[in-house]
Computed example of a mutant assay.
Amino acid sequence: MTCCEGWTSCNGVSLLILLILGVALNAAPLIFSLVEEDQFPQNPISCFEWWFPGIIGAGLMVIPATIMSLAATKRACCNNRVGMFLSSFFNVITVLGAVYCIWVSFQALLEGPLVCNSKRNSTVNCEFSFKNLSAIHQESFDLEWYLNNSCVTQVLSSLNNPTSSDTVTQHIIIHFSVFLGLLLVGILEVLFGLSQIIIGFLGCLCGVSKQSRIV
């Protein structure tokens, strides 16, 4: 196995791990909201998990490149120039999906969980549009909703129904952990994807190892 095939195989394993992690992180707030629906129906963790950054961006869009790269372990699909070219091509899709995951996660971290904004504490008020997704609010760059605990005080003083401080804090921690994790997953997928694009391109130009002949 040449260095091109070896690195391709390593990329495949890494992308598989990141793929699974991205899907699991994206599913976490959805499962939590489903479990807590009877107790906290008007305050979902966020709108951004419904954009499926981990399931679609860091998940489904990474599958083709992952399968192609894992095939290098058996010296199959990537043991020729066409295979290395396809490996590079599929990793372009991986990079695009990872960038989507990064952008959605970045916006989610800037906005904070819906529970921190009593005026938008229902998914009914979420605006699912690319225009809304591209609007960056400069005043949120300091992550004040997470660092200063101002969100908890604001929610407890503004909601009509009694709300547990522990529940609000739990939503904040889940939101921060999930989207910070997805942000890191997306960044790593971009790095692995770009490296495989380069390796695949070099393998396509220079060729890969030939099967040894049986004497």
Rank of each mutant, 00 (worst) to 15 (best):
209 S>R: 04
121 N>E: 10
98 A>V: 12
37 E>N: 04
26 N>H: 02
153 T>Y: 02
15 L>R: 00
203 G>N: 05
210 K>F: 01
55 I>E: 02
215 V>P: 05
98 A>Q: 09
172 I>R: 09
190 V>I: 15
161 N>F: 01
120 R>V: 06
4 C>K: 09
15 L>Q: 14
183 L>S: 10
178 V>F: 07
171 H>E: 10
160 N>D: 15
20 I>L: 15
161 N>I: 10
96 L>Y: 03
172 I>P: 07
142 D>W: 03
82 V>W: 04
162 P>M: 01
51 W>Q: 02
32 F>D: 03
45 I>C: 01
144 E>P: 00
198 I>Q: 02
188 L>F: 15
210 K>P: 04
80 N>I: 11
135 A>N: 05
200 G>P: 02
214 I>L: 03
11 N>V: 15
157 S>K: 01
124 V>I: 14
164 S>Q: 11
78 C>L: 15
116 C>T: 10
113 P>I: 05
19 L>G: 10
166 D>T: 14
75 R>V: 07
72 A>P: 09
31 I>Q: 08
55 I>G: 08
128 F>N: 03
160 N>W: 00
172 I>M: 12
11 N>Y: 14
56 I>Y: 12
24 A>W: 06
31 I>N: 04
43 N>A: 03
94 T>K: 08
175 H>Q: 12
46 S>C: 07
127 E>V: 13
122 S>V: 05
25 L>R: 05
62 V>R: 00
94 T>E: 12
202 L>S: 09
167 T>G: 06
147 L>W: 08
164 S>H: 06
29 P>A: 00
65 A>D: 12
4 C>W: 13
46 S>E: 07
84 M>K: 10
185 V>S: 00
62 V>Q: 12
48 F>W: 11
69 S>R: 03
110 L>V: 08
149 N>M: 03
17 I>T: 14
19 L>Y: 06
85 F>D: 07
214 I>N: 05
79 N>G: 10
90 F>W: 15
162 P>A: 08
181 G>E: 08
47 C>R: 04
42 Q>R: 06
110 L>Q: 11
71 A>T: 13
201 F>A: 14
72 A>T: 13
202 L>A: 13
146 Y>Q: 02
167 T>L: 09
5 E>G: 06
181 G>T: 09
126 C>F: 06
176 F>G: 05
18 L>G: 09
101 C>H: 09
1 M>D: 04
138 Q>G: 14
150 S>G: 07
55 I>M: 12
55 I>R: 05
111 E>Y: 10
